[in-house]
Amino acid sequence: MSIRFGLLALLDQGPRYGSQLRAEFESRTGTTWPLNIGQVYTTLGRLERDGLIRPEGGGDAKQQLYAITEEGRRSLVEWFDSPVDRTQPSRDELAIKLAMAVGTPGVDLREVIQRQRRHTLSAMRDYTRLKADAMNADRSRPESADSDPDDVAWLLVLEQLIFYAEAEVRWLDHCEARLVRLAAQRAERGGRAGGPPAADEAPPRPVARKGASS
């Protein structure tokens, strides 16, 4: 879906070849979502089938110039005018992994969280490095020149990655804090029952059945 409208948005700026579209898509988004040329031609084929673009001039399939149609323009306006649907979240591997780790024997959930946090923080540092480079490049442009739209777009994409990584780290911290609290409650209940204190227990594997704490 996003590639389809991404290509349409580029074609709205004037007719382009497939290879050109691929290069422009990537310079707007860095190489965050690399596109292979096959995907580009498949998508162009579908856009043409749906009447949103049309071939211009002659040329073979690989050297074909495409232009947006009126229908394509309407479709693009509609895309920009509507929010991206967040009520149908795509499957997230990390959420699935944590959900599966809860209660799985032999899996140390806090260790899973810790490893992920280390990785995400390191990714966040890498993105921040790229952002610093992008900001430095922008600083070095002559004052009379406007920012290059490709550079601005790349910065927006990078910042999304940074903010999402930050949100993920906060979520992981929250998960861990919850596990610690559940373990403490469990230890307390164990203590009250006359059992040995469970403070030195191996990292807790919480029982997160619904209603378990009520």
């Binding site: 946090r117 280390r118 540092r125 993105y127 610093a132 990584a165 911290d173 929250h174």
Partner: peptide
């Protein structure tokens, strides 16, 4: 995340010396 390394302090001592540990908790 702009730094090369993160040092975490708690109660006046260094508890972690990378970006590896929990920030928020």
């Amino acid at each position: 995340a702009w730094a090369d390394r993160v040092v975490f302090l708690r109660d006046g001592t260094v508890v972690d010396e990378s970006a590896a540990s929990s920030a928020e908790s």
